[in-house]
Design a protein around this nucleic acid. Structure first.
Lengths: 298, 298
DNA sequence: TTGCGTTACGACTCTCGTAAGGATG
DNA sequence: CATCCTTACGAGAGTCGTAACGCAA
C-alpha cells in the first residue's frame, strides 16, 4: 500500500471511475493506474471496485468504507506539508476562500486589504460559488476557508465560527412610493420584489419572515448577487431586498434605503473550515481579522 | 513522502531515537533508515530531528507536530487493513485485551468462553499490565481493547464504555473476630489490612472511603492481584480487601466474606478503545458480550 | 574499542510507459 | 470504431545492502 494507490481511489471517485482520467491526475498512464489498483486489491485480498465487464462503475461496500479512511490519510498528509511550510516561517502560501459574490465584493475587501499588509506574499484565490457548492469545495480540498451565510450548519466535519450579523434592507429609486420609514411586510409584499436566488445571502430568512406573516414571497426577479439586483431596481422593475452590507454609500446614492430589520430576522455569516485541517499562522491571522470585525450580540 | 518514512519516525520515538533499532523494526539496515529520514527532511524542507553532533536525541518542535499527524495516518492505515479483513468475513483475526489480573482471571473467562464459541479462530492475547500501562498499550497499538477499573477517564482519544459495577468485600479466615455482619470502617481500620497496590482494582475507592471517614489507610501488604492477597489472608496476616468478583465459591470456602458495600463506594469497570479505531465484527461482538453481563444501575 | 550516524556504490526491485489485446456499446 | 480496461515487456528510477568513514563516549 502506498500513497499513490490510495490517492488513485480518491481520483477514481472524482472522475466518475474513469481510470484514464484518474491516472492523468496522478500523472501516470492508464495502464499504470490499472496495475496499481490491482496491486492494492490484491494486497487487501478483496476487490474495492464494482466492475461491469471490465468497466469500473463504482466502489464495493468495502471500497466505500476504505475511502473514508483514505480521506483521513489524505488530510493528514496535506497537514504535514502544511505544518512544515508553516514552520519554515515562509510567509508565502496559498489562501483559497470559497464564498459568494456578496461576501467577496462587500465584506471581504477590507479584511483582505489588512491581510495583505501583514502577508503580502500569500496568494489569495477567491473561489466564488453557490452556497451548496462552497461546502463541497472545503471537503474536496479546493478551498481552505468558506465564508457563507446559508447552508453552514450541522456538518460534523466542519468547524463553524460566527463571523458577523447583518440584516436586510430594501432599496428603491428615490421617488418610489415605498420610500419612507416603518413600512410593513404587507406593503412590501404588494410590490414586485427583486432579491437573491434561493440559497443565497439570507434568502431563507426572507422566506421565513413572509411565511410567518402568512404572506407569499413572490419574487419578480432573483439573482445570485446584489449588483444584478441593483441594476434592475434602477430600471424600475421593483423593490430590491439585499443585505445591508451590500449598500455602498458612494455608489448607490441614487437608491433609497429602507430598513427591514424589524421585518426580517437578522442573518449570520459564518466562517467554516475542515475540523482536522491544520491552520497555518497566516490562516489563523486571517480568521482573526474576520472575527475582529464582528458585531455579534448573541 | 511514503509510509515507511513516516513509520520510521514513529519507530524512532519508540526506540529512543536509535536509528539502527528503528531500522530493524522496518526490516531495513541503518544506512537505509538514515537516508529515508534525510529524504523526508529534504522534502519537507526542515529538519525533524534534534541532533547532537550526529546523534539523534529527539524531535524538533516541527517533528513533534508532524508526529501527531503521522499517528492519524498510521491508525487509518491499520483500519484499512482491518476493514478489508473484516469484509472478507474471515473469522480469524487477533483480539488483544489489555487488562489486569483481576479482570483476566475472574471477570473475563465467561465472556471469552462465549466468544470462542462464536469465533473459534480468533487468536486472543491477554496482555496483563498495570492500569497505567494499559492505556499506553492502546495508544501504542499493542492492544485493541482495555478492560480496567482505574485510570480510565478523560482521555479524549479513547472511547470509554461502562462495563459493570461491583463493590469490595473483606475476606478473613472463618474464625477471625471480624467475621460478622455490619462492621464499621473503624473496626476495619483497626485490623492489619491486605489489599491491592495503589492504582489497581478500585484502590482509589478504598482510599477515598478511609479518607472521608478521617481514617488512615494503613496497608500491611499490598499486591497487584487478588490471589496473592488471599494467600496471605490464609496465612493469617490480616484482613483482605478484594473485589467481590474475585471471590470464588468453590475455591474460597475456607474464607469468610464480609460485605463492605455500605463502607466503600462501588467501583465501575470500563471498556476502552481508541476513538478512531475501526471495530471489526468480532470486536463489536465481544464488546456486546461484555456489556450484556452488566449490572449497571446508573 | 564499541556504538551510532553518514556517505559511496553496485545490485536489485519496483513502477512506469509503450504497445498490443479484448470487451463493450 | 471509439472508449475503456487489461496484459506483456523493456527501460529507468528508486531503494536497498555492503562497506568504508567520521565521530564520540
Amino acid at each position: 500500500m502506498n500513497f499513490n494507490q490510495l490517492e488513485l481511489l480518491r481520483f477514481l471517485q472524482e472522475t466518475n471511475f474513469n481510470l484514464s482520467k484518474a491516472g492523468d491526475k496522478l500523472n501516470v498512464v492508464q495502464s499504470a493506474a490499472s496495475r496499481q489498483i490491482q496491486l492494492l486489491e490484491e494486497e487487501l485480498g478483496s476487490s474495492l471496485l464494482q466492475r461491469v465487464g471490465k468497466k469500473l462503475v463504482g466502489f464495493t461496500p468495502l471500497g466505500d468504507k476504505i475511502l473514508q479512511e483514505i480521506e483521513v490519510i489524505d488530510l493528514a498528509r496535506r497537514n504535514i506539508h502544511s505544518i512544515a511550510r508553516d514552520y519554515k516561517n515562509n510567509r508565502n502560501g496559498t489562501l483559497r476562500i470559497a464564498t459568494t459574490h456578496s461576501q467577496a465584493k462587500y465584506f471581504l475587501p477590507e479584511s483582505i486589504g489588512q491581510f495583505r499588509v501583514e502577508y503580502p506574499q500569500i496568494n489569495i484565490y477567491m473561489v466564488q460559488s453557490s452556497p451548496d457548492q462552497i461546502i463541497d469545495l472545503l471537503h474536496r480540498h479546493q478551498a481552505e476557508l468558506a465564508i457563507c451565510t446559508e447552508k453552514l450548519d450541522e456538518d460534523e466535519k466542519l468547524v463553524i465560527l460566527p463571523c458577523y450579523d447583518w440584516h436586510h434592507i430594501a432599496i428603491v429609486p428615490k421617488d418610489h412610493p415605498l420610500n419612507r420609514d416603518h413600512i410593513t411586510l404587507e406593503q412590501l409584499a404588494a410590490c414586485p420584489l427583486l432579491t437573491y436566488s434561493p440559497g443565497f445571502t439570507g434568502y431563507s430568512n426572507i422566506e421565513k419572515a413572509f411565511h410567518e406573516a402568512g404572506l407569499t414571497l413572490d419574487v419578480t426577479l432573483s439573482a445570485a448577487d446584489s449588483d444584478v439586483i441593483k441594476t434592475y431596481v434602477r430600471q424600475g422593475l421593483g423593490v430590491g431586498i439585499i443585505a445591508s452590507t451590500c449598500y455602498e454609500n458612494k455608489n448607490d446614492r441614487d437608491l433609497a434605503v429602507i430598513d427591514l430589520s424589524h421585518l426580517i430576522p437578522k442573518s449570520r455569516t459564518k466562517i467554516a473550515f475542515l475540523k482536522q485541517l491544520y491552520l497555518p499562522g497566516f490562516l489563523q491571522y486571517f480568521i482573526g481579522l474576520l472575527q475582529a470585525k464582528n458585531n455579534l450580540n448573541t
